[in-house]
């Protein structure tokens, strides 16, 4: 079929709406910027990735510091997609990279800027829910549960990595890496039905396979952190004193 007879491909488009924030700076601009900085300090990620429209209606051509306002906002990582209430012919705005505006738009009320609370109160080491897995963990897979224990009913292959905020329990051969107590929990432990770990770490302290006593390799064992040293202990069934066999 000759090219000119072929219909041009149909272009598909989908709609997506974002909420743009409208910032209305007030004079004196230096004070307003200080207030903005204080707000960003309390809510560091609030403006990240959000479109912002700059409303200049409270200012005029002669407002002190107007020329520096646009660069000051850009410097703070604020992405300005439109400017309204001002005029590109204002001399102070001559250097601005005046974005093409958008049409339409519906006003929606004031936006509450959330405050970061995480920094104020350090979270108490969360002992969240356990993660239970019943399939073999393959080489290259990473399993992570930052809030609690990981229980694996099966094997962990060489080259796999299991990372838990709490303890790690492997009811099978542990041949990969086990990283327990990742958020700074020295009392976390690593248990394996058959200990063959490539690397074991608790609260940042680690040992490699070579450092594990060969007597405990391929045996049921646990690894604990004691005086900043990882200790491998055999998991032996309890013996009953005085009981005759």
């Amino acid at each position: 079929m000759p090219d000119e007879l072929r219909p041009p491909p149909k272009i598909r488009a989908r709609g997506r709406s974002f909420l743009a924030l409208v910032l209305s700076p007030e004079p004196a601009l230096a004070d307003w910027l200080l207030g903005l900085d204080a707000q960003i300090a309390r809510s560091s990620t609030f403006f990240a990735g959000k479109p912002v429209i700059l409303d200049l209606s409270l200012l005029d051509a002669g407002t002190e510091g107007l020329a520096g306002l646009y660069p000051a906002l850009r410097e703070r990582g604020i992405r300005i997609i439109g400017i309204e209430g001002g005029d590109p012919s204002w001399p102070a705005c001559a250097q601005w990279d005046w974005p093409a505006g958008f049409m339409g738009g519906r006003a929606s009320g004031a936006v509450e800027i959330p405050e970061d609370t995480a920094t104020a109160t350090a979270p108490e080491a969360p002992r969240g829910s356990s993660m239970i897995l019943e399939q073999p963990i393959r080489s290259g897979q990473t399993i992570m549960n930052p809030d609690g224990d990981i229980i694996i009913v099966g094997s962990v292959a060489s080259g796999a990595e299991v990372t838990a905020g709490g303890s790690i329990h492997v009811y099978g051969p542990l041949r990969g890496r086990a990283i327990a107590g990742m958020n700074g929990q020295p009392d976390a432990r690593i248990f394996a039905h058959s200990m063959q770990a490539e690397l074991a770490a608790i609260d940042g302290y680690y040992i490699t396979a070579e450092e594990i006593d060969p007597r405990y390799v391929q045996q049921p064992a646990q690894i604990i952190l004691s005086n900043d040293t990882l200790v491998v202990q055999p998991l032996v069934p309890p013996t009953f004193a005085g009981r005759k066999t």
Partner: peptide, 17 residues
């Protein structure tokens, strides 16, 4: 990366950190 083997062939796989 993702399918490493050289450590095995070199016999160093038990010392990788």
């Amino acid at each position: 990366v993702g399918l490493r083997n050289l450590d095995l062939v070199m016999g160093a796989e038990r010392r990788v950190v």
